[in-house]
Write a protein that binds this DNA or RNA. Structure first.
Ligand SMILES: NC(=O)c1ccc[n+]([C@@H]2O[C@H](COP(=O)([O-])OP(=O)(O)OC[C@H]3O[C@@H](n4cnc5c(N)ncnc54)[C@H](O)[C@@H]3O)[C@@H](O)[C@H]2O)c1
Ligand SMILES: NC(=O)c1ccc[n+]([C@@H]2O[C@H](COP(=O)([O-])OP(=O)(O)OC[C@H]3O[C@@H](n4cnc5c(N)ncnc54)[C@H](O)[C@@H]3O)[C@@H](O)[C@H]2O)c1
Lengths: 209, 209
DNA sequence: AAACGATTGTAAATAGATTCACAAACAGGG
DNA sequence: CCCTGTTTGTGAATCTATTTACAATCGTTT
């Protein structure tokens, strides 16, 4: 699928991998890397790395490789990571709370700015420094807080309804933790985080030996 | 990639999606479904569903569709989900604890049977009903407990070392939560659960409008 | 018992992704 | 300043996945 501007989606999905490996290399003191070396590190062919990058420009130097800091800068720019993204968490149960206090988002430019629940016993509580709002007020508050991304952590049986509300309120990117593959319009991008699904495809290879 | 027996990996990765949708349909009281209807539900073409299933056999009836309960049974069998899998959790910090007490694994046949850490302050503690063992004793205890799958929830900087140890101890399937793409031999399957990577590819589409 | 509408399973065609392979470009050394 | 050893960027070739298209089959209706 080439959902946008001619760059295949598989390519975009690999860029964060490159980014992470390069950031690691930079903090280990390396300056330059070849597609060959990066490929070994990530178990990807060098040609694939070069072709992926070629969709966006010419970032390397023949005979040398890529300047790590320069490539990092360009990848961050391409992925839109040279800005901070405001995130709303919907569903402040056990998982929602741990997402709100997960320290891995902020350093990557994702800031959880507000949290929502529908349970009157939870609304008004403070979780991880955030006051929990009523999900009924989502549209208004999300606009005020400039929310661009929603993380869904509600029970599976209400996930579709919650996502429908998010879509109606104009959200274009959703990270869904509920074990439910939800329907969204084509202009809304949804990613599922689901450890059970990952396990279920690995068991195929474990059992079919 | 057709890593095993001629069935493409993309196909195997879609089966758990089918499984989940069918289980949902069954519990809603449906008996039969056509590839057309299932495709609408999952946003997949009917032909893809039929072709995917055809790698494993002929499960449908012309003119009718698929018996949901029969197809569920076959999919569970194909994926190796008609047995219980024993899982070890490595790294009993905040995330490790929440994995141990996550109620979503058991009903799907994944049983967390033991937990490991390297911190002497954590080893010996009880978490979610499990005594935390020293990771140094992994090989011995994992064999005794018949562990088949390991879940890694340690800091990124030790993830590769931990995974090397797991591989040395004979694990063939790893679910990795550490934000690090780790290297494993070709016979060891690893899946990463990484919300940041998911977010980072969605921002491409948000910013590049 | 024949005719009908629905739906599968799959071979062939199309579309898409990856890899190959090499000319062009660069750094370093003689 | 030219030669050597690298490594990029990319068209063309290959490989893989998806979609098309339809004969075969099934239950139902007439
Ligand atoms: N993917 C993962 O890694 C993972 C891990 C754990 C849990 N989960 C899933 O995440 C979801 C939440 O799990 P949990 O353990 O936090 O459950 P939980 O019951 O502790 O929390 C769910 C929260 O959602 C709220 N909620 C319910 N309906 C709502 C609505 N319509 N609008 C807003 N909020 C609503 C509830 O009030 C509750 O606070 C479940 O679907 C669970 O299966 C996924
Ligand atoms: N993918 C996700 O959704 C997600 C969410 C949260 C955290 N994480 C990641 O999961 C990991 C753990 O996060 P956390 O918040 O639980 O951290 P934590 O520090 O609370 O826990 C890490 C645990 O690992 C243990 N450990 C360290 N070295 C070890 C070793 N060599 N062998 C065995 N155990 C060892 C530590 O003693 C500690 O108990 C981190 O890498 C974090 O980035 C991922």
């Amino acid at each position: 699928m080439t959902t946008h501007s001619g760059v295949p989606e598989v390519v975009v999905d690999r860029l964060p991998q490159y980014l992470r490996a390069l950031a690691q290399l930079e903090s280990s003191g390396f300056d330059v890397i070849s597609s060959q070396q990066l490929g070994e590190l990530l178990q990807v062919t060098p040609a694939q790395i070069r072709k992926d990058l070629s969709y966006f420009g010419r970032f390397g130097k023949q005979g040398r490789g890529y300047s790590i800091s320069h490539l990092l800068e360009r990848l961050r720019n391409i992925l839109g990571l040279d800005q901070t993204w405001n995130v709303a968490v919907v569903g402040v149960g056990r998982l929602g709370r741990s997402i709100i206090s997960y320290p891995g988002f902020e350093p990557e430019g994702f800031r959880v700015v507000c949290a929502f629940d529908s349970d009157p016993a939870v609304v008004g509580q403070v979780a991880g420094g955030l006051t929990v709002y009523n999900f009924a007020d989502y549209a208004e508050i999300a606009e005020r807080e400039h929310v661009q991304i929603a993380i869904v952590a509600v029970p599976a049986n209400v996930a579709q309804a919650v996502i429908d509300n998010l879509v109606a309120a104009g959200v274009k990117s959703i990270l869904n933790y509920a074990p439910k593959s939800a329907l969204t319009p084509p202009d809304v991008r949804i990613r599922n985080v689901d450890p059970v699904v990952s396990l279920q495809s690995m068991t195929y290879y474990l059992s079919a030996v």
